[in-house]
């Protein structure tokens, strides 16, 4: 999986491309941990080009979310392909992640008067 990190204002945006599985899930966890350790508190994952996600990939995302909560940070997701959305729905993960239909919507949510 390719992971590109960019800054959009106060939000670190990660563009993910490829398959999210055990190996790439671990890499992703490491990348996000590094961001949190460098005082980033807002992370967004753009999943437009994630074509496949399996059980291990989901486990990595859940683990990242737990880390996010412990650090009192915020994690959002956007652009889930229909197949990925389907898995999020069956696992009910769509209820615990903040999921937006577009990256822009997610970034706007970070600018709300309260959370900014």
């Amino acid at each position: 999986m390719e992971i590109k990190v960019r800054e959009e204002g106060p939000v670190a945006v990660l563009d993910l491309k490829g398959r999210l599985d055990l190996a790439s899930g671990s890499t992703l966890k490491e990348e996000i941990k590094k961001l949190y350790e460098t005082n980033h508190t807002a992370v967004h994952l753009n999943l437009t080009e994630v074509e496949f996600i399996n059980s291990s990939g989901l486990g990595s995302l859940v683990s990242i979310l737990k880390e996010t909560r412990l650090r009192k940070s915020r994690l959002t997701l956007s652009n889930l392909a229909s197949y990925v959305q389907e898995i999020f729905d069956i696992t009910q993960l769509s209820h615990i992640f903040e999921i937006f239909s577009s990256e822009q919507e997610a970034l706007t949510s970070f600018q709300s008067p309260v959370t900014s």
């Binding site: 291990s56 486990g59 009910q92």
Partner: peptide
């Protein structure tokens, strides 16, 4: 049943 299946999907592994 779907909730149980969803949970098992996240956990994965040989038993599931």
């Amino acid at each position: 049943r779907e909730a149980a299946a969803g949970a098992m999907i996240i956990i994965g592994g040989p038993k599931a």
